[in-house]
């Protein structure tokens, strides 16, 4: 029993950490043809540079539903500060006349946009898309 006690204690302490692990995943519409995107392509999409699949440009959707998600996006996807990214996307309109990426502020709105647009790409918490057959998870972008 004395030997089991530390083991039980370790399991009890480890359980909450495992249950609390969060992941941010890259998602597209399950109806769409996008099956794979590499990290450079992902960065290009969210920087407003053209990435083409089956003759269609991919459309970035910024997920502003959660502050932590926004921080993960800035640090792990575009590798920029908020200020630098703002200036970059404002410059897209100013320099190239290119509409800015769509920015949505709720999980439902992001999912709805993904359902409508087969060429849209966004990022979400993995828990928000678990069991959702209408979206396809392409890769894990960040793990807590």
């Amino acid at each position: 029993m004395r030997r089991l006690l530390p083991l039980l204690l370790a399991l009890v302490l480890a359980a909450p950490a495992s249950a609390g692990t969060r992941q941010v995943v890259l998602v597209v519409s399950a109806d769409g043809p996008i099956a794979k995107l590499d990290p450079i392509e992902i960065r290009k999409i969210f920087l407003g540079l053209p990435v083409i699949r089956f003759s269609h440009p991919l459309h970035p959707i910024l997920n502003g539903s959660d502050e932590q998600l926004e921080q993960v996006f800035l640090q792990d996807i575009v590798a920029m500060s908020q200020s630098a990214y703002d200036r970059h996307v404002l410059g897209l309109v100013l320099r190239q006349g290119k509409p800015r990426p769509l920015e949505l502020d709720s999980r439902e709105a992001v999912l709805s946009a993904l359902y409508r647009d087969r060429y849209a790409v966004s990022y979400m918490w993995s828990s928000d898309v678990a069991g959702n057959s209408r979206v396809r998870v392409l890769r894990v972008l960040w793990t807590d």
Partner: peptide, 8 residues
């Protein structure tokens, strides 16, 4: 708006 259709 940008991203949702052919006309943005």
């Amino acid at each position: 708006p940008a991203g949702a259709s052919d006309l943005e």
